[in-house]
Design a protein around this nucleic acid. Structure first.
Lengths: 206, 206
DNA sequence: GTTCGATATATCGAATTGATATGATGAGTC
DNA sequence: GACTCATCATATCAATTCGATATATCGAAC
């Protein structure tokens, strides 16, 4: 598989530690994913990454659950909680993960790998993590995306011009064309920025 | 599951017969799906629908493969082909499907069912098939989508204003905001059209 | 004539989904 | 203080979808 979720999780953990529930909201709020990624994807992915040694669970120090900070709980409840925390049976509460050195290395390789195809969602995730790419790889990523968008634009424009379609289907294709045009303008502005940065650097180096 | 692929396939077959390979391109060209749907989804979905009695395979009359139209083939090759066609072993070529009455009924129910959530891709498919919905259901679909987009817009605008994000992640969120704004404008124009049609109809009915 | 890209079905393991179960916490409210 | 209720949080399941791969035909180009 393309392992885009692995890249996204590792990318989020590059910044700071996270627990599973939080990763879902971060995907939306920081990586621009518009659909909710299922917990049925996230928890198995974290388990997979932990087995692989790319992430490790850390003690939930600032957890709201396992903290046992003040003596506000009854003795009975506290001991029950301690038992659960120790035994691991029925344990609930945050499980915070940290990226390992191995995870950091794996992240760099996965993010840079151009063979994992980039549909819209994947490209968005990658671009939101682009600060971890070299300028060259960033430009390559943008140009690959640009090529895809140009051919998709031709396709949706043909659809919008297809008189066999009813007005709803045609409206969908017209809107798709506008959306692709917006995407293309964005890519082009990013490419311009990359190239001007590159020129600045070249000038500085002189 | 949400069975969006089933809806899409049945919707395409409402218009005319299709074979599996063709359905993939039609999803892009007529229903506005921007990613290629895997054949590993399409062929099992067709088999499922056939088992369920919603579609049926028709003789590949105009197939390029099984046609046997002119005598341009050598006797040996023709007999080999006939053998394959009869035995079903190693048979290749188009397998064209037609929607059944049962399929038509199922399609109407699935398309109208509001419990199947509408992320971007699903909404696009449904909207491209909106001519099969009643005006009331069309407006309900558009309003549900509008609600989702409004809350998503707030989320991405917050992301774009988040100074903790690096310039790439922030650019992603800014572009996401623009994309949602474009989507919203589209939805609103469709709603306006629906309502003016409704008014026209009400006037006509007077 | 033979190589190559497009057409076409099929199948597999792995990943993802949507639903559901279970429980903790915090904020009201009576 | 006891009560509801929304939110937080992990976990698991069958069904679905993906990405890769295998196989084979056709048309065109060389």
């Amino acid at each position: 598989m393309s392992r885009m979720l692995d890249i996204a999780i590792l990318g989020l953990l590059m910044d700071r530690d996270h627990h599973g529930y939080e990763i879902r909201s971060q995907l939306r709020e920081r990586l621009g994913v518009s659909a909710n990624v299922s917990f049925g994807s996230i928890y198995p992915a974290l388990a997979r990454l932990e087995r692989h040694g790319s992430v490790e669970a850390v003690a939930p120090t600032e957890s709201r659950f396992g903290a046992l900070s003040t003596g506000s709980l009854s003795g009975e409840r506290a001991s029950l909680r301690a038992l659960r925390a120790t035994s691991g049976i029925g344990r609930r509460g945050r499980k915070v993960y940290r990226i390992t050195d191995r995870g950091r290395q794996e992240f760099a390789e996965l993010l840079a790998d151009p063979t994992t195809m980039d549909d819209g969602k994947n490209f968005t995730m990658r671009m939101a993590l682009a600060k971890y790419l070299t300028p060259t790889l960033r430009v390559a990523l943008l140009e690959r995306r640009r090529t895809d968008l140009v051919s998709r634009l031709a396709e949706v424009r043909a659809g919008a011009a297809n008189t066999e379609l009813d007005s709803y289907a045609r409206s969908v294709m017209e809107h798709a064309a506008q959306a692709v045009e917006l995407d293309l303008a964005w890519i082009d502005s990013l490419l311009t920025t990359e190239r001007s940065n590159h020129n600045n650097f070249a000038q500085d180096a002189k």
